[in-house]
Design a protein around this nucleic acid. Structure first.
Lengths: 166, 166
DNA sequence: ACAATTGTTCAAATAATAATGGATTTATGC
DNA sequence: GCATAAATCCATTATTATTTGAACAATTGT
């Protein structure tokens, strides 16, 4: 396989993967492109490479920066913006977990707390409360577990471990 | 808050959550409805409750059965199909992990293996291979970790643990 | 101050995804 | 085996999400 083919396959697949992680296809493709770039890239580089419009690139770059998956680099004496990806995979993973926790887990935890306020006056509401309680226990446990994963030095531990288990 | 309101909020939120987990909105809502039902439900029950068409219910019930998040129940002397949800949250979670692993992680692992076949003949391809290797290490580690999570008796352990950490 | 370059916004167009509802198939009781 | 009820399929329609591109704003060098 040639480099070019591999690159294209990777970008395509990375984009598809993104759609399952709260990252849309183009956003994923841009991220994939930056991940394998040896140098910083500009909006025009991306437009040319992925055949997408300036507006699209701009919006998705903003999202990626917001997710802290890429970094903007301003060069003195150059009015272009340059971007480079966070290349530490573990950090990328943690960033995504962090974002998804905010977007998904927390609203659910809040909801479960809210709806626990109903009265258990019959079988239906009793069953409902029972399920809400189980979901609460689970969600809160998951929240804590993910916090550990994200905030801890697990980074180093896993990176080291990985070297021995490939 | 009344039961009815709580129920509606839960179903709505569960549906929205689903969209982030490879489960579409309606599929999530049906799952939510079954999760809090005290008895087995039929297609007509769901149509009435969620105001959606028979075809839609049918398609999504099939997906839910395929994901093993709900079970079909056939009653002798009754030609209707009944459904009930898997109510053990840990099992639900494991089922979703299992499905997503197949759908997302495995294609990625395969891709990474494929593209590792390119030659490292210049800086770009060397960098590319380096990143593919890091992603491989990470993906394979994740795969194994999730396997443990899904297949092991962690079920019992976590359920027990959860009782003490709420 | 002006021209040139780059970045940003957003309404409209397009594409992707999901839902409908009628046609068809399947299963069951009589 | 026939009538009927339920399930399934799927072409069409509706909805939602994404992309475009042109207008506008910001920045910098001259």
């Amino acid at each position: 396989m040639q480099y070019k083919e591999g690159k294209e396959k990777f970008i395509k697949t990375w984009g598809e993967l993104g759609t399952n992680w709260g990252i849309n296809k183009t956003m994923g493709q841009i991220h994939g492109l930056l991940l394998i770039s040896t140098s910083e890239v500009t909006t025009d580089d991306i437009m040319k490479e992925l055949h997408i419009s300036r507006g699209n690139v701009n919006m998705n770059l903003r999202s990626l920066v917001e997710w802290e998956l890429i970094h903007k680099i301003e060069k003195p004496g150059d009015r272009k913006d340059y971007y480079k990806a966070e290349k530490d995979i573990w950090t990328v993973f943690r960033q995504i977990i962090k974002k998804r926790k905010e977007k998904e887990l927390h609203p659910m935890i809040n909801l479960l707390e809210d709806v626990s306020a109903i009265e258990a006056k019959d079988e239906k509401s009793a069953e409902f409360l029972k399920m809400m309680n189980e979901l609460s226990l689970f969600s809160n446990k998951a929240d804590k577990t993910l916090d550990n994963l994200v905030s801890s030095r697990a980074n180093i531990l896993v990176s080291t471990y990985m070297k021995f288990t490939r």
